[in-house]
């Protein structure tokens, strides 16, 4: 049934924009928490840049194909992206499953995956204006960062961040959906915490791993598409062709994760037990 044309119809787009706007305003309310978060990202920026520059120095200037300034950009863009893709700490949906509030999501005329996605994109837009920009400014002042040489990289980076947010949303949504089966998703959250730290490029660049591990991670898992991909796009790793490949991989994973969210959502609804009373 023309799902795609329904989603892209003017009324549906208006609803999506309204939900995104609400997501933006909701997160813009917590300014103190935003500043605290940006401060923490900045401190971690200093910590990780020091480590990466020591690695580059030890390796004689180039580590796994990255020069010092590229590694510094990797760290600061990574710290800014953490909040944009909201790598950690989203349990809103699973909390609603546990309390039974999720029933009101299911009664709405908008598909739950779409309404949560729209709100999440609004949140990401606010994070981009605040949590991304603040540490980036500090990083630019304090370190010699690599800035893109090709003008086309800037719009491609924005697109890559959009894909990254969608992929991250898909993973988080699926993690939350397990609450329909498990109720207590502490274990799943912990497993996601492990993957998000070790496999997205957060702890170390994926390129520091052996070649076979890199290939498996990039093509068989969505994780590098969440963090390493936008970073590799902005530091112009490899040729413009490599940039295009990275974006294509991300685009595929964004589509796969959204489709998976919709399919699992349908199955989860059959498991619905409304708690409380």
């Amino acid at each position: 049934m023309g799902t795609v044309s329904t989603v892209l119809s003017p009324p549906a787009l208006r609803t999506g924009m309204a939900l995104a706007g609400a997501g933006f305003r909701r997160w813009a309310t917590y300014r103190q928490a935003m500043l605290a978060g940006a401060f923490t990202n900045t401190v971690f920026g200093f910590l990780r840049t020091s480590v990466m520059l020591a690695v580059a120095a030890g390796a004689g200037g180039v580590a796994a194909g990255y020069r010092g300034p590229q590694l510094a950009t990797y760290v600061w863009v990574g710290q800014g992206l953490l909040a944009v893709v909201q790598l950690w700490g989203w349990t809103e949906l699973s909390d609603r499953v546990r309390t039974g509030d999720v029933q009101s999501d299911l009664l709405r005329p908008v598909h739950p995956v779409l309404s949560y996605l729209a709100a999440d994109l609004g949140r990401a837009a606010f994070a981009l204006c605040s949590r991304f920009v603040l540490p980036m400014v500090v990083g630019l002042i304090a370190f010699d960062l690599y800035l893109p040489h090709r003008p086309a990289t800037y719009p491609l980076f924005l697109l890559s961040m959009l894909f990254a947010t969608v992929v991250s949303f898909g993973v988080r949504y699926l993690v939350n959906l397990t609450a329909f089966w498990l109720l207590d998703i502490r274990g799943v959250i912990m497993a996601w915490l492990l993957c998000s730290n070790a496999l997205t490029g957060m702890y170390f660049p994926i390129a520091f791993l052996p070649g076979w591990a890199q290939a498996v991670l990039w093509y068989a898992t969505p994780f590098p598409s969440i963090l390493q991909a936008p970073v590799d796009v902005v530091v112009e790793r490899g040729t413009a062709g490599h940039q295009a490949t990275v974006l294509a991989v991300q685009g595929c994973w964004a589509a796969v994760m959204l489709a998976a969210a919709v399919v699992v959502q349908r199955r989860a609804e059959r498991r619905l037990v409304v708690q409380g009373g």
């Binding site: 480590v51 030890g58 580590a63 702890y203 520091f208 791993l209």
Partner: peptide, 9 residues
Amino acid sequence: VLFRVTPAL
């Protein structure tokens, strides 16, 4: 992992 790409820190 870091020592895969550098001999010393």
